[in-house]
Amino acid sequence: MFKRLMMVALLVIAPLSAATAADQTNPYKLMDEAAQKTFDRLKNEQPQIRANPDYLRTIVDQELLPYVQVKYAGALVLGQYYKSATPAQREAYFAAFREYLKQAYGQALAMYHGQTYQIAPEQPLGDKTIVPIRVTIIDPNGRPPVRLDFQWRKNSQTGNWQAYDMIAEGVSMITTKQNEWGTLLRTKGIDGLTAQLKSISQQKITLEEKK
C-alpha cells in the first residue's frame, strides 16, 4: 500500500525546468507551479508516452532531478554507511541512485490517469530550513484521497528550496528505503546496493492501464 502511495505522490513532485522555475526561495510556489507544469506535460505528451513509456525517463531527467536534492536524499538512505564509504564508492552510488530515480519516478508518472491535487495554504517560513507541505491527491475514479507531506529543505548556501522526502501515513519514503535496503547494505555494503540500483534502473517502464 505504501509503495502505491509513494508512486501516486511522485506525480506531483516533478519540479519546473530552470527556464520557467518559480521563486526558488518559496517552496509553496515551487510546489504549486511544479504540480501544474507536471500535470500539463503528462496530459499533453501522452502520444509520446504511450508510444514509448521510457520517454518518461527524459521527462524526469529534464523536469524533476535538477530540483530534487538527489545527493542529500541518497546520503540519508545510506545512513551510517555513508561515512564509511570511499569517495569513489559515493560517486558510483550517487550515479546509480540518480539512474534509479529516473526509472522509479518514471514508473510513478506512468500512473497518471487524470488525477488532480490540492496544496495546503502557504504558511510563514520564518527562519525554518525544513518545511512540510501537505498535498491532497484526488483520484477521478473514486479512490479515497491521498494526503501527503512533502519535505522541502532550504539550501544554506543559495537560499533555494528543494524537495527531498515524502511522508505518507506517518511513514517517510527515506525511512522506507532504509528499511528495504538495510539488509543488503549490511551483507554486501554500498557496492552491493550500487549494483542492485544499476540493475533496477535497467527495467523498462510500463504503463498502468486505467481501472
Rank of each mutant, 00 (worst) to 15 (best):
P140S: 14
M7V: 06
L207W: 15
L197Q: 04
F97N: 15
A51T: 14
M111A: 00
A22H: 14
Y82R: 01
F97E: 02
Q162A: 04
Q48T: 11
Q24I: 09
G170M: 01
Y164E: 14
W161F: 02
F97T: 08
K43W: 07
T176A: 00
Y112N: 06
Q24S: 13
V171R: 03
Y67P: 01
P145A: 00
G126H: 08
Y117P: 05
T194F: 07
A34S: 09
K177Y: 15
W181D: 15
S84R: 10
A35G: 10
K83F: 02
K29S: 15
R50C: 05
L197E: 07
G106Y: 03
Y72L: 01
F2T: 02
D23Q: 07
T206S: 11
R134M: 03
H113D: 06
M173K: 11
L207D: 15
S17N: 11
V146L: 06
E45C: 10
Q203R: 13
M173T: 00
S199L: 12
G142W: 08
Q203A: 05
Q46R: 06
R186I: 01
Q118D: 13
E91F: 08
I133F: 00
M1K: 03
Q36D: 14
Y82C: 05
Y100K: 03
E63F: 01
M1N: 00
G189Y: 01
F2A: 01
A21Q: 13
V68D: 01
G74R: 01
Q178L: 02
K210Q: 13
T20Q: 09
D40I: 08
N26V: 04
S199D: 14
W152N: 08
Q36T: 15
E208Y: 13
K43M: 07
A19I: 02
A195Q: 13
L78H: 02
S17K: 15
E33L: 04
T206L: 13
D165A: 00
L78F: 03
M1F: 00
Y67S: 06
V8H: 01
N141A: 00
Y72F: 05
N26R: 05
R143E: 09
E63W: 01
A19G: 08
G170S: 01
S199Q: 11
L30M: 12
D139K: 15
F150G: 08
T175I: 00
G126Y: 10
M6R: 01
I130F: 01
D191F: 08
S17D: 08
A96L: 13
N179K: 05
M1R: 01
S84T: 11
V77C: 05
R186A: 00
K71C: 01
R153Q: 01
Q178M: 07
N160H: 09
N44E: 14
T194A: 00
V60F: 07
I174N: 14
E33Q: 05
A34D: 04
Q157A: 03
L184A: 00
R134W: 02
K210R: 10
D139Y: 15
I130P: 01
L16R: 02
P124T: 13
K37E: 08
A21M: 10
V77Q: 08
A73L: 02
M111W: 05
T116H: 15
L101W: 15
L148K: 13
L193W: 11
P53M: 08
R186G: 04
K83V: 06
N160F: 01
P15Q: 15
D191M: 10
Q202C: 10
Y117W: 07
T175L: 09
R134A: 00
A85S: 12
S172L: 00
A9S: 05
L10D: 01
H113A: 01
K3N: 08
G74W: 00
P15M: 10
A108W: 15
I200Q: 14
Q46T: 06
G170R: 01
L125D: 06
Y72K: 01
S172M: 02
V70S: 14
K83Q: 08
I190P: 06
L184S: 08
F97G: 02
S172W: 05
K37R: 12
Y82S: 01
T175P: 05
Q162L: 06
D165T: 04
T206E: 10
Y105M: 02
Q115A: 03
K43D: 13
L30T: 05
G142V: 13
